Computed example of a mutant assay.
Amino acid sequence: MTGTTDVRPEAAPAVAGRGRLPYVPVLVLLALLVVAAATAGIAFGSVPLPPGQVWGILLHRLVPSLVDPTWPPVRETIVMDVRLPRVLLGGVVGAGLSVCGMALQALVRNPLADPMLLGVSSGATVGAVLVMVLGLSAFGAFSLPVAAFAGALVALLLVYFLARTGGRMTTVRLVLSGVATGEVLSAIASYLIVTSGDPRKTESALRWMLGGLAGTTWDLVWIPAGAVLLGTASLLAVSRPLNLLLAGEEAAASLGLNVHRFRAALFVLVALVIGAIVAVSGSIGFVGLMMPHVVRLLVGADHRRALPAVALLGAAFLIAADLAARSVIAPEEIPIGILTALVGGPCFLWLMRRRAAR
């Protein structure tokens, strides 16, 4: 999968550099941040729960003899069946988007690269909108995520074949193919919504396009969780070749990396992970764009160090954003994509100005 031959291990750290802060304390702090965000995400809501009771319920489910159940059964149902799967999915989506964003920025050597750049999210949107507008239900409750993933897969194949010429895939063709495909598919989705003729279907489709985790069940968690775990593990396994790309295509090729084969394989991997994520969460922007920049400031650009850190930071950020989305104007819920854009836009501008000043 890596397409590498005789890649010198010592070359990657020299290319990637290191951050200013000690790595292990930063990783521990980010892990604690995920735990704190998850605890708050489960504890707060229309029925507030004490954080200690939340942990008591979780420990009781894991080891029944460890904690005596002194809480009403309805609170255990709220924690285990309503809020916990939503918080876990939020963490999975945040981690997956952040990891894919960091990998894409290395693959295309563009700090503005984002998981939505490849057009895969637009393909997923078309699939989901078709289900909502036409009322399709061939797969029951799974009709929407299945259709969204199928749309993402079609978009992936389209971008892949458009970007390849003569058996090679250049950065420019990949970006242009992804942007063009995404724009066309977005236009198709918008046309389907405008011509649906049903205000309820239109509102439902628009909310899905803006991203959200409402209605999450345990059945929706496992597939994206597996995709993100496998994708992150695969990217960690090829972190040295990713580091080599930071020095440029010619430098990476001179160090033994088959750049075209490696980029094509990683493009397919990242697109499949993004498709699995978008199929259950809708399009959530700025997470995959912003989190990698923050992590590089903390621990540097070496992907062996940055990928675990960006996964933790992305998970904590999206769990917190989802909590805010369902709390700011409760009982109404703000689409999470709106909040990530409101937070991500100014933060990204600040990071850009900070780098320019340096």
Rank of each mutant, 00 (worst) to 15 (best):
S186E: 11
L206V: 12
V221E: 07
M209Q: 11
S196E: 06
G211E: 14
S190I: 00
L213W: 05
L210I: 01
D198R: 14
S204D: 11
L192P: 05
T195L: 11
T216Q: 08
L192S: 07
G197F: 04
L229H: 07
S190G: 06
D219C: 10
W218E: 03
A189F: 14
I193K: 12
A187P: 07
S204L: 15
S196Y: 00
V184P: 06
I223W: 02
I223S: 07
R200D: 08
A205L: 06
A187W: 00
L192M: 10
T195C: 08
G231W: 10
G212C: 07
L192R: 14
V184G: 13
V194I: 02
K201R: 10
G212I: 03
T181C: 10
I188Y: 09
I193E: 13
A233C: 09
L220C: 06
M209W: 00
A189Q: 13
A187I: 13
D198K: 09
L206N: 09
A225H: 03
G226C: 15
L185M: 15
T216L: 14
G197Q: 08
S190W: 06
E203V: 04
K201P: 04
T232A: 13
S204V: 02
V221K: 05
S204W: 11
G197Y: 06
S204K: 13
G231T: 05
G226Q: 04
I188V: 15
W218D: 00
G182Q: 11
A233N: 01
E203W: 14
M209G: 14
T216I: 13
G231L: 01
D219S: 11
A233E: 07
G211K: 09
E183L: 02
L210C: 05
T181I: 09
R200Y: 03
Y191N: 06
I188L: 15
T217K: 05
G215M: 12
L230H: 10
I188K: 01
A233G: 01
G197S: 08
P199K: 03
V221N: 03
E183G: 14
D198P: 04
A233M: 15
G211S: 07
L229G: 03
V228M: 02
V221P: 04
P199I: 01
W218H: 07
A205T: 06
V184W: 00
G212K: 11
A214D: 06
M209D: 12
S186C: 07
D198S: 05
L229D: 03
V184N: 11
